[in-house]
């Protein structure tokens, strides 16, 4: 282990702002893109389900009219 304590790890011998900002941005972008992909899938499925329900509904009304 390269550090004596957890605080030493956080401090990075004075390089903390550099190391943690670089790692932080990377983490934010990676986690963000993963979460985005999941949210995108949910949205899509919900939209498609709604559209299908609407179409079924519309189809039934057409049947009534004819």
């Amino acid at each position: 282990m390269a550090f004596d304590s957890f605080l030493a790890l956080l401090a990075m011998e004075g390089h903390a702002p550099y190391v943690w900002s670089a790692w932080g941005l990377t983490a934010v972008l990676l986690i963000g893109s993963a979460l985005y992909a999941r949210a995108e899938r949910r949205h899509l499925l919900r939209d498609l389900q709604r559209r299908q329900r609407r179409e079924r509904h519309a189809g039934r009304e057409d049947a009534h009219e004819s």
């Binding site: 282990m1 390269a2 790890l9 990075m12 011998e13 390089h15 550099y18 190391v19 670089a22 790692w23």
Partner: peptide
């Protein structure tokens, strides 16, 4: 990789700990 690179890898004799940016860069 993150834990290894951030905690266990030795620091660089010239650049100190700032070299740990290499693991994302």
């Amino acid at each position: 990789g993150s834990v290894w690179g951030l905690v266990f890898a030795p620091s660089d004799y010239q650049q100190g700990n700032s070299f740990r940016i290499i693991y994302v860069h």
